[in-house]
Simulated assay, not measured.
Amino acid sequence: MKRQIMLAAGLMLAATSLQADVIAPNDVVANEYGEIAMSLTGQPGNPQRGAEIMVSRGAGNCLACHQVGALAEFPWHGEVGPPLDGVGARWDEAGLRGLMVNADTMFPDSIMPSFYRISGYTRPGDAFTGRAAQGELSPLLAAQDIEDVVAYLMTLTDY
């Protein structure tokens, strides 16, 4: 019994230390160009999970605005944003992370959502506005979600 308690405490400590490595949305530091060199989690991204986030309408929903040839089997590719084919050859991780966290920093007046930002802008909808007023607003994607999408985007090197 005592060993089980110690094991559980160790697992809780490990989980806490993983959480401690996550950079909070308001603590993210970008350079003068909007690039974010440091990983938000300190953990490598999972490209397969990144692709899942991109095609999920309840998560990234990237295909609503972008075309991605490697994801052609998924319907409804948008034409609002630029095609993402070759994006991994055009941008480095810091640039892609900056675009995901807050595209407006890199491209003023961009309509791309700030996926890891919780303040400094108005998010539409009564549910978001009410939660923001109570200090309960969370980013659209979690820090590891951002890292996973960046890892997938880095695989898109062909045009």
Results as ranks from 00 to 15, higher is better:
Val87Gln: 01
Met106Asn: 05
Phe107Tyr: 07
Gly130Thr: 10
Pro83Asp: 14
Met112Leu: 05
Met106Asp: 07
Pro124Trp: 13
Met100Asn: 03
Leu99Thr: 02
Gly130Ser: 10
Phe107Leu: 10
Leu99Trp: 03
Ala127Ser: 12
Ser114Pro: 05
Arg117Met: 13
Pro108Val: 06
Gly95Leu: 07
Pro83Ile: 12
Ala103Ile: 03
Arg123Leu: 15
Phe107Met: 11
Arg117Ile: 02
Pro82Phe: 03
Met112Tyr: 01
Thr122Met: 14
Ser119Lys: 09
Tyr121Glu: 11
Asn102Ser: 11
Arg97Cys: 00
Thr129Asn: 12
Phe107Pro: 04
Arg97Ala: 00
Phe115Trp: 07
Gly98Thr: 12
Val101Lys: 00
Arg117Gly: 02
Arg90Asn: 10
Val101Leu: 01
Pro113Lys: 05
Gly86Pro: 10
Asp126Lys: 10
Arg123Cys: 12
Thr105Gly: 05
Asp109Asn: 10
Asp109Val: 04
Ser110Val: 03
Phe115Met: 06
Pro108Gln: 04
Ser119Asp: 15
Gly88Leu: 15
Gly88Lys: 13
Tyr116Arg: 14
Asp85His: 11
Gly81Val: 01
Arg117Thr: 12
Glu93Ile: 03
Phe115Ile: 00
Val87Leu: 08
Pro124Leu: 15
Arg97His: 01
Asp126Asn: 11
Asp126Cys: 05
Arg123Ser: 12
Thr105Ala: 12
Ala127Thr: 09
Phe107Val: 09
Met112Ser: 08
Met112Lys: 01
Glu93Ala: 15
Gly95Trp: 03
Val87Lys: 02
Ile111Gln: 06
Pro113Thr: 05
Ile111Cys: 03
Ser110Thr: 09
Pro108Asn: 10
Thr122Gln: 15
Asp126Arg: 10
Gly130Tyr: 13
Pro82Asp: 04
Pro83Ser: 14
Val101Arg: 00
Ser114Leu: 05
Ala127Asn: 09
Arg117Ala: 09
Ala89Thr: 03
Ser110Gln: 04
Val101Gly: 03
Gly86Tyr: 11
Gly98His: 08
Pro83Asn: 11
Met106Cys: 05
Ser110Glu: 10
Thr122Val: 14
Gly125Tyr: 07
Gly125Asp: 09
Asp92Gln: 04
Asp109Gln: 09
Gly98Cys: 14
Met112Pro: 00
Gly130Gln: 12
Arg97Val: 01
Phe128Leu: 14
Thr105Cys: 06
Thr122His: 14
Met100Ser: 08
Asp92Thr: 02
Ala89Lys: 06
Ile111Ser: 07
Glu93Ser: 14
Arg90Cys: 01
Thr129Gly: 06
Ala89Ser: 08
Gly125Met: 07
Gly81Glu: 07
Arg123Gly: 09
Ala89Gln: 06
Phe115Ala: 01
Arg117Tyr: 02
Tyr121Ser: 08
Gly86Phe: 08
Phe107Ser: 06
Ala94Arg: 00
Asp126Leu: 08
Asn102Asp: 15
Met106Gly: 07
Asp85Leu: 11
Tyr116Leu: 11
Ser114Asp: 07
Ala94His: 00
Trp91Gln: 11
Met106Thr: 06
Leu84Phe: 06
Ile111Glu: 11
Arg117Asp: 03
Thr129Trp: 07
Tyr116Cys: 12
Pro108Ile: 07
Tyr116Glu: 11
Ser110Lys: 11
Pro113Val: 07
Ala94Glu: 04
Pro124Phe: 14
Leu96Ala: 02
Asp92Trp: 01
Met100Arg: 02
Arg97Trp: 00
Pro113Trp: 06
Asp85Thr: 13
Ala94Cys: 04
Pro83Arg: 06
Thr129Cys: 08
Met112Ile: 02
Pro83Trp: 02
Ala127Ile: 15
